[in-house]
């Protein structure tokens, strides 16, 4: 559904949009949700840094311990949370994830953020929005809207994690 060039183009556009809506790079912090959100956050931070000539703090935010479906899935190990040394108090935090689906991961991420600090604002950037929201959550920056059936699987593969760069739909 998306090829390498599409992914690059989408990320470039999102980077510009983030800069524009934040009115500059000051105060921005990007937090990726493991595993692929972290790779995307790093790439977005590099792009924003390139466009604005600034160093954008980037980190990862694990939401496993905040999920509401821990009893419905096999137990999984958490991934590390790495908050940039400047913290997130008063910052504009942009959460970055690969696929937005039910919205429950983002709900958990908002709880996790509240335990780390108090940002001035939290925004959401996703590479793919596939619909089927179960909570009143809406992304601020979207790479591609991908209407899908809930029986389908949306796979995001990235260079840093999988050695290929594509978005596919299965099933």
């Amino acid at each position: 559904m998306l090829h390498r060039a599409d992914v690059t183009r989408a990320l470039t556009r999102i980077a510009h949009e983030i800069l524009e809506s934040a009115r500059g790079p000051e105060n921005l912090v990007l937090l990726g949700i493991p595993t692929r959100g972290v790779e995307l956050a790093n790439r977005l931070a590099a792009l924003i840094g390139e466009f604005s000539d600034a160093d954008i703090p980037v980190g990862s935010l694990d939401v496993t311990l905040y999920r509401d479906d821990l009893d419905r899935q096999p137990t999984r190990g958490p991934a590390p949370t790495l908050i940039p040394s400047g913290g997130i108090d008063g910052a504009t935090v942009v959460l970055v994830d690969d696929v937005l689906y039910s919205g429950r991961t983002i709900r958990a991420a908002l709880d996790a953020i509240a335990d780390v600090g108090r940002p001035a604002a939290v925004r959401l950037a996703v590479l793919v929005d596939r619909g089927h929201r179960e909570l009143p959550i809406r992304p601020d920056f979207v790479g591609k809207n991908l209407p899908s059936s809930s029986s389908e699987r949306v796979n995001v593969r990235l260079d840093g994690n999988d050695g290929v760069e594509e978005v596919t739909i299965e099933g």
């Binding site: 311990l65 190990g77 958490p78 335990d115 780390v116």
Partner: peptide, 15 residues
């Protein structure tokens, strides 16, 4: 991972 959460200001998790 658990030890890392215990270095934060808010040590309690809702898990």
């Amino acid at each position: 991972d658990m030890a890392a959460t215990q270095l934060r200001e808010v040590k309690k998790l809702p898990t």
